[in-house]
Simulated assay, not measured.
Amino acid sequence: MPTESRRERAREERRTLILRTARDLAESEGWDAVTTRRLADAVDYSQPVLYGHFKNMDAIADAIALEGIEELAAVLQAADGLHGLARAYLGYAETHPAAYEAMFTRRTDLVFGTAESPSVLKAAFAAIRAAVEPFADAENAETLTEVFWSALHGQATLTRGRRLRPTHAQARADALTALITNASW
């Protein structure tokens, strides 16, 4: 009979396989292609096994969102300055569109901006805030951080939807960072 730790390892391996497969499907074909039936077939487990790990597809997307936010936080923490952070953020969004969608555009049960928010969400926001803080007074640093983040998100989302000129991505990032660095906050 397998030991408890072996069972837990096997369970964690199944969970990891489910998430990796769902993310791969979403990245290659979009979130509409990720269904429990298709996912069960791809991982060679039954749908009840999937439901043993995740309540529904939203829970799978939320888990992928948390993974993506953890990756993004690491990328942002390694960025050099405000301009580097803007490039890193937009680069992540472009390179990982389905993860980015799970993180910031799909419906989610994740709670942002509260004391109850998962620590990884706080870490990503803190990385953005650390880059913005030198350009804001203490009273307005969080608001300016939200403005900067939302502007980056807008650029990422509109670029992904092909609503912005692709040849001007760098100029947009430069303009945004110039606005923040010249802010009188």
Results as ranks from 00 to 15, higher is better:
W185K: 01
R23L: 12
A78E: 13
A61T: 04
A131E: 05
T21C: 06
P97M: 05
A171C: 00
V111N: 03
V111C: 04
V111F: 04
P134T: 02
A98I: 01
Y51Q: 08
M57Y: 07
H168C: 03
T108P: 02
I18Q: 08
R15K: 14
G30I: 04
L179P: 00
A65S: 14
R107P: 00
G68M: 10
R162L: 11
N140P: 00
H96L: 01
A115F: 10
V132H: 13
T36R: 10
I69L: 14
A73H: 09
G113H: 10
P2M: 13
L25I: 13
A79D: 09
H53G: 03
L82K: 08
K55H: 12
E146N: 14
L110C: 03
S117C: 06
L82H: 11
T159H: 14
S28F: 00
D80I: 01
H153D: 12
H83N: 07
P134C: 03
L85D: 07
A86K: 06
H96C: 06
A131Y: 04
D58R: 15
A73D: 08
T177Q: 10
H83I: 01
T159C: 02
W185H: 11
E12L: 14
R7H: 06
L144P: 00
S46M: 01
E101G: 04
A136E: 04
I128T: 15
F54N: 09
F112D: 01
T16D: 14
A123Q: 14
A175W: 11
G91K: 01
A123F: 02
I18R: 10
W31C: 05
R107V: 02
N182P: 00
L152R: 11
H53C: 03
L72S: 09
E146K: 14
E142D: 15
A78P: 00
A61N: 05
A26D: 02
L76H: 10
G81K: 05
D58N: 11
A183G: 13
L50H: 10
Q155I: 15
S46W: 03
G81H: 07
R38K: 12
V75L: 06
G30R: 04
R23V: 03
R165L: 09
V147L: 15
E101N: 01
G84C: 06
